[in-house]
Design a protein around this nucleic acid. Structure first.
Lengths: 180, 180
DNA sequence: ACCTGAACACCGTTCAAGT
DNA sequence: ACCTGAACACCGTTCAAGT
């Protein structure tokens, strides 16, 4: 990054970047409009040019997080694609432990949210599920994987071999993914 | 209830009851110490006699919620017990849609939290799992069931046949519960 | 023993005003 | 066009004081 988020004119991107840094550094509960403004050396109201309110700020952060997900190429086998997506989600949780909970707390509505979902749906349909069943299975899988990842970064697996646990959960889910 | 929560002397129980009513009526985000005090016709500081701080209030609410869970009798078959526990958790989510999210948000630490967990562990061990595997499986199952219940009350399944979805998820989990 | 008032250091957001 | 200051209606919590 050439320009730190504290120089130049304010943009939505700079506001979101600063919010991400602040939330990751001090915790999500410390992310306030006023603290964020201080971080950017600007009055609190200046933020409202780029974000309609705090809700919008949080939605923007979710979009930013989801945009980081690398999606598997559709030419790969569907099982491999699901596995890659699970790993990507878990890696995202590790990269942003303080923010990942947002994804489970608030429903993702923006454009970025549909990208990974569509990728999972394609994989499940390639695995032989009809569209309806695939939609149901997608919700179940994403709930499990995100719940697992969140539990992990929230320290709920303290003192456990997380890798083994994840592998075990995945191998169970693998059988589950397309079983009638 | 003979005595509404606004009469008589303040107790921890009355504070928690009022907090539950308030959170369920106006939403968890509106549950504040000050609003709660207003509800109880008392100064905000009076609450601090019965609750060390807001964290403690929220932990108390979690304990209250978990205490409502009816646990299956251990003489029943282990599969039936798991099924009953899943139904109970889902029913709890329906009874307290505004508060249920607390259970996933903060780690349950109190005495009531171990009751359902122990019940699940006994069922899984009766199903043939060794203690270690049972512990892992318990975390996976509770994550899935609570994630499902939360998604449901949070409206993430809007426009879907939730009953069918739950049955399908459970039947998948059933195979999953003790498969090697 | 139990409760209160005033105070401190915060919030999100609106609105009129400044450049 | 973009930002600010002052203001409003809130927070959680401490501390000294009241009964």
């Amino acid at each position: 990054m050439r320009t730190p988020y504290t120089s130049g004119s304010l943009t939505r991107e700079r506001v979101l970047n600063a919010a991400l840094v602040l939330a990751e550094r001090d915790g999500l509960e410390r992310l306030s409009m006023r603290q964020l403004a201080r971080e950017l050396d600007v009055s609190p109201m200046a933020l409202y040019r780029h974000v309609t309110n705090k809700e919008d700020l949080l939605d923007g952060l979710i979009e930013r997080l989801l945009a980081e997900l690398r999606l598997p190429d559709d030419s790969l086998g569907w099982e491999q694609r699901l596995r890659m997506l699970a790993d990507e989600l878990r890696a995202l949780a590790h990269r942003h432990p303080g923010l990942f909970g947002l994804l489970l707390q608030r429903r993702a509505v923006g454009a970025q949210a549909t990208r990974p979902r569509e990728s999972v749906l394609r994989a499940l349909r390639d695995g032989g599920l009809d569209p309806d069943a695939a939609a149901r299975r997608e919700r179940l899988l994403s709930t499990v994987i995100m719940g697992f990842a969140l539990s992990e970064v929230a320290g709920r697996f303290a003192g456990v071999d997380v890798e083994q646990e994840f592998e075990e959960a995945l191998s169970l889910l693998a059988g589950l993914a397309v079983a009638s």
